[in-house]
């Protein structure tokens, strides 16, 4: 099962390496990972997408908790939540293909953020599934480059992961 785990981490050097190292040492999967400071400069917020059975996910969350710099851990996919990922895609776009790509981007509510006579760069935000679907939908359009941020997530409603 896919899980989205959010972590509040002391914004200290070495903390991120320790966290990533934990996944490597214990053989846990990381499908995506993103991290940045929060409104509180002393804290980083990290969103990690992983998969595994219930026992593995429970261990991941316990092992994360054990790290000295980890302040809070929450498996946000356990309850109602919102997930977003940012993707930038550069494609070859010339001739008829230009119209085709533009239409496709519109359908997915993507924006074309850079244009040359032969290329488009499209920005798309959504769930990871939606981004996958867009890449599929591009069909025969030659993809030159894909950059994805990895998912970020937040719980719905009043629930928060904060100090």
């Amino acid at each position: 099962m896919r899980h989205i785990i959010s972590v509040l981490l002391e914004n200290e050097s070495g903390a991120l390496a320790r966290l990533v190292g934990l996944f490597a040492q214990r053989g846990y999967n990381i499908d995506s990972l993103n991290v940045a400071p929060t409104d509180d400069a002393t804290l980083s917020r990290l969103t990690l997408v992983t998969h595994g059975n219930d026992q593995v996910i429970e261990q991941i969350s316990k092992q994360l908790h054990k790290l000295i710099e980890v302040v809070k851990v929450s498996d946000i996919s356990e309850a109602a939540h919102i997930e977003r990922e940012l993707m930038l895609v550069k494609v070859k776009a010339s001739g008829n293909q230009r119209e085709e790509v533009k239409r496709c981007a519109d359908i997915f509510r993507g924006q074309i953020i850079d244009v040359t006579p032969t290329t488009y760069t499209i920005q798309l935000v959504g769930t990871s599934d939606k981004l996958d679907a867009f890449l599929q939908a591009l069909g025969t359009t030659p993809i030159m480059e894909v950059v994805r941020s990895g998912a970020s997530g937040i719980a719905r409603g009043e629930k928060t992961l904060a100090l």
Binding site: G14, R18, Q25
Partner: peptide, 14 residues
Amino acid sequence: MLGISRPICKHNMS
């Protein structure tokens, strides 16, 4: 040494 000892200690600092 922080890198080497990371997986074999409870915590490390510099």
